[in-house]
Each structure stands twice: as structure tokens, then as C-alpha cells.
Simulated assay, not measured.
Amino acid sequence: MGRSDQVLADAEAILRRHSERGQSLSSRARARRNAGMLRKLGRIAAAAFAILIAAVVTGWFLPLGPNGVMIVLGAIIAATLLIAVLPSERTVKAAALAETDLKALPLQTEIWLESQRKALPPPAVKLIDSIGVRLETLAPQLSRLNPHEPAAVEVRKLLSDHLPELVTGYQSIPEPLRREERNGRVPEQQLIDGLSVIDGEIDRMTEQLASGDLDKLATQNRFLELKYQEAKALGEPGQ
């Protein structure tokens, strides 16, 4: 292995270890909710400011009086309540994942998975946390992928078909039967095994896409080295 290849391999290993130490699915969901609350507060402040400006402008032509002041206060309160009741983050339905743009699919899948946590057993929750971390790593790679490439089709099928069908299939089973063996299989264990397979499959896809990017980078680097050598040779005396 050449020095440049070793550097790339080391960098990839560091990035992978950093990703695996990433925040859990619930932590990132909490961060998104906090960001959504800050956006709400910003919208409330902007709406109140706009109402006050409109009141000041109106007051230049028509005295507001006590009734006008009450109307302004009422408008501010109504705007605040309206913005407050709006969801800070859109809910994602399993059926909508199939229509989601490939670039947005990892995040939308992560949001949907977060909404399923309460209906899953603890071992499955740990696995969807792991899947969430892998989706975070996969996302930037998908942003550069042609949606019609075989790899893109494989990723979409896994995230928008197999994963939701596994989770919703488990949830459709009555609670008392989820831990009972039937035909040699226990639904809860099937869910855990299935999520484990999906977790490993996303990791495999990520490594394959990363390998393609690293190979492309190595090829470009070699091309530049050759061009630099040609330029250097052309600049030598006697050429």
C-alpha cells in the first residue's frame, strides 16, 4: 500500500470511529426540537415586531385609542398562539418515504424512526440508534449519487420499503403475542434480527460508496501526479 493510500485509509478509519461515537437518535432528535423551538421564538418575535410597526404606521393617520391598543395586543397574542401550536418539525409517515428525494431520505428515515421508539423493545431501540448514526454518515454520500444508479435504487428499497415494513409489521402484532413463539419464531426476536441485518447492510453500503469515492480520489491524485511530472519534464533544459 502506497503512502497516499495509507493516509486515505487512516482518514477513513478516523471518520468511521467518529461516526460510531456520534449522538444517539434521540439526542439528535432533541437537538432538532430545540432548533425548532428557537425558530418558533424567532417567528413570534418577527410577527410581534411586524404588528407593532403596522400599529405605529396606522397611528400616524388614525389615533389608536384604548380599543386600538387592545386590538394590537390581541393580534400579538393570537399570532403567538398560532405559531406556538404549529409543529416545530414535520411528522414523517412511512408511506411518504418512498416518494422522498434521495438526498433527504436518510434524515426523513431518521425522523420516522425516532417517532417509532416508544413502540419498540429496548434492544430494538439500541439498533435504531445505531441505524440513525449510520444514516448520518450515509447522507452526504447519497447527495452525490445519481438517483437512478443501482446503488441508489438499493438504498431506497432498504430505507423506504424493507425498514418500514419490518417495523410496522412488528407493531401490527398484538402486544401479548410479540414475545410468544409461533412456528419456531418469536416476533420480537425477528424484529431485532431484522434491524441488525439492516444496520449491517447500511454500513456495507456506506463502505462501498466510500470506497468508490476513495478510488476516484486516488485516480485523480495519480492523474495530477502524472501531469505534474509531464510539466516538470517539459520545463527541463533540452526538452
Rank of each mutant, 00 (worst) to 15 (best):
L62G: 07
L62V: 13
L64E: 12
G65K: 08
V69P: 02
I71T: 12
V72M: 02
V72P: 03
L73D: 09
G74L: 07
G74T: 04
I77L: 05
I77N: 04
A78S: 05
T80Q: 04
T80N: 01
T80A: 09
L81V: 12
L82D: 11
V85M: 08
E89C: 13
R90H: 07
R90Q: 13
A95T: 06
L97N: 05
E99A: 13
K103G: 06
A104Q: 05
A104P: 01
A104W: 12
L105T: 02
L105K: 01
L105E: 08
Q108H: 14
Q108W: 05
Q108P: 04
E110W: 09
W112T: 12
L113H: 14
R117S: 14
K118S: 10
A119Q: 06
P123G: 03
P123N: 05
A124V: 06
V125P: 04
L127A: 14
D129H: 12
S130E: 10
I131A: 00
R134M: 15
R134V: 00
L135N: 02
T137Q: 12
L138P: 01
L138R: 01
A139G: 07
A139F: 00
L142Q: 14
L142A: 12
R144E: 11
L145G: 06
H148Q: 09
V153E: 15
V153G: 00
E154N: 10
R156C: 11
K157P: 03
L159V: 03
S160T: 04
L166N: 01
T168Y: 15
T168R: 14
Y170T: 01
Q171N: 08
E175R: 11
R178E: 03
E180W: 15
E181H: 10
N183K: 09
R185E: 10
